[in-house]
Nucleic acid binder design. Structure first.
Lengths: 184, 184
DNA sequence: TTTATTAGGAAACAATCATTCCCTATTGTC
DNA sequence: GACAATAGGGAATGATTGTTTCCTAATAAA
């Protein structure tokens, strides 16, 4: 069932919510219609489950990417580089469920909006934490406002997913090189 | 007809493409089904026309916001402030057709993808131009890479639309204050 | 072995979708 | 004033949607 949910994640990522029919879902999950409705209340429930799964996986990937850095500053850099990588190529084209949910559903579906907000705020707090670590270890100046900078970096990462979905190329080293000025 | 198209823009902005039915469209445009299909080939044609109209209006708004600045640097600042303003409140909740088109349709619809790309690249070139103006008038250092910085700023602006759609508050002065470090 | 419970599958359901067709005013032309 | 042309409106249509229902096969308990 978890593997079926992973397949649902892929479909929702690349087609979004409304363009994904139950037929698309059953084909991707390799389950019959009845089986899907036995496991989930309705289509939205499948989406919410897929959202949660996607969010958990991405959180872990982002955290482990950041962990590759040896200072707070380097951890921010690796986190941004990881985001560029995920926004590009085949995965970039596939897209991000959080961004998709925000754009397609957040306006009208309070349940989705709550999850999108929670995910964004968690990420933002994580980035602010990295910045504070950097200030503690001396790799990031004290005068940098951790919260404001984190929120701007959230905009950057979410924006990269939009640009990546449109298949515009992103040069990781150059883009992140510029973004690191925010920690000056 | 132009006023009807403006109303179509609003609906497509807040509901997206697939969640907008012809019924929603006719109700918003105050036109009967037959009239819509007399003016446009199909639903996608309505969307493309709405997209073009929205893009033209937003381009003008962004340009006039930038024009309020007296130096290249100040023009970039005003342009970013304008983006924050449009990403917030009722308009932020309504959303951006370009971001919506990118996230919802760019993966599968080449025609929409081409327009999204064109709009993003036009904006990016405009921002790069502002930066070069600032370098010419001495308000922005020469060592700033105009193209890389413009691309990052595109990510910032597109990301702000995503965050704004999720109804998270954005403090314009603080956010732009941090972003202006990119011109240091 | 028998029975109860569950996971999974396919067909049927009503509702909604985008689209087409045809009718009615209104406008401009001769 | 008569007529052609067109813009707009609304009902009808076929396809597709999400959902439900019922059936089969497999598994666990007794």
């Amino acid at each position: 069932m978890d593997t079926a949910l992973d397949r649902a994640v892929r479909v929702f990522c690349e087609r979004g919510y409304h363009a994904t029919s139950i037929g698309d879902l059953t084909a991707a999950m390799r389950l019959a219609t009845g089986s899907v409705y036995k496991a989930f209340r309705d289509k939205q429930a499948v989406f919410l489950a897929a959202f949660d799964r996607y969010a958990a996986v991405r959180r872990e990937q982002t955290r482990s990417a950041a962990a590759r850095g040896s200072s707070g500053r380097e951890r921010v850099r690796h986190m941004l580089l990881s985001y560029v990588a995920h926004s590009q190529g085949i995965e970039g084209r596939r897209g991000c469920i959080v961004v998709g949910g925000a754009v397609e559903l957040a306006a009208l579906d309070p349940e989705v909006r709550a999850r999108v907000n929670a995910q964004i705020e968690t990420n933002e707090a994580f980035i602010a934490g990295l910045i504070r670590e950097g200030q503690a270890d001396g790799s990031i100046p004290r005068h940098v406002d951790a919260d404001d900078t984190a929120r701007l970096m959230i905009c950057i990462t979410q924006g990269m997913r939009v640009v990546g979905k449109a298949r515009l190329p992103l040069d990781g080293e150059r883009l992140v090189g510029v973004a690191m000025k925010l920690l000056a």
